[in-house]
Design a protein around this nucleic acid. Structure first.
Lengths: 124, 124
DNA sequence: CGGAATCCAGACTGATACTG
DNA sequence: CAGTATCAGTCTGGATTCCG
């Protein structure tokens, strides 16, 4: 009881809570076609993100039931991650997000070309 | 020069950076139909979020060119916020996100009903 | 191989107070 | 009305180290 109830059942707020992790959407993108093993996932992440961080993000996504962790009892150990059912439904959002993200990147490039100077803006 | 370049031009990573702010998507949702004034925006935000926080979020969104700040030189002052052009293009993502968010909320309700006990999970 | 535990540094948040 | 400044508390990612 006494759960943190941020803003009763608003889909935007609830979604944003889930997507808080810095890499959550990218991880879901990597998992959308097939299960991926831990180390393979790490290799595909930007900047060779440390496994500590990746591990935490995966655990968070698992807690929220967006991904499923599947352990194979072998030597050496093998663990695969894949999207859950509700996680797969998120692919539609990912698709739109990819479209928009690319438009936005184009927009930023244009903006920076026209206005290359006064930039304390962040990169992309 | 020397901008922070997180992961060259990946739409997911770029998008997530923009959406970092805890309320960014909700703000964009509130602005999607028409311009809204500062105080009105604050009233519609969850939990009467402080204007300090709202101000910062708006400034961040403005810096990223997702929203436009329009100042009317009147007494008393009047400032309206609205989506920019690239901001409006984000509405498609918002639409999918709303669908998914509601599905997800339903999923969580069902999960918690079937399994009301072992919960250190967060609310929604 | 796939983690958990710990610690640190930087970012974000919010309360409070002040301004034009 | 619509902010800004400041400061404290919290949250988070990342590095390092150790474990089954």
């Amino acid at each position: 009881m006494e759960k943190k109830q941020l803003f009763g059942l608003c889909p935007y707020v609830t979604s944003q809570k889930v997507l808080t992790g810095k890499w959550s959407m990218y991880i879901m993108y990597l998992l959308k076609d097939a299960p991926v093993r831990f180390n393979e996932l790490q290799r595909r992440m930007p900047e060779n993100m440390t496994h500590t961080t990746l591990s935490r993000q995966l655990k968070a996504l698992e807690k929220d039931d967006l991904i499923v962790r599947r352990v194979y009892s072998e030597i050496p150990p093998k663990v695969e991650y894949e999207l859950s059912e509700i996680g797969h439904k998120f692919e539609k959002v990912l698709a739109e997000l990819e479209v928009w993200g690319n438009e936005y990147i184009e927009y930023l490039k244009k903006r920076d070309k026209e206005n290359p100077v006064l930039d304390d803006r962040e990169g992309y």
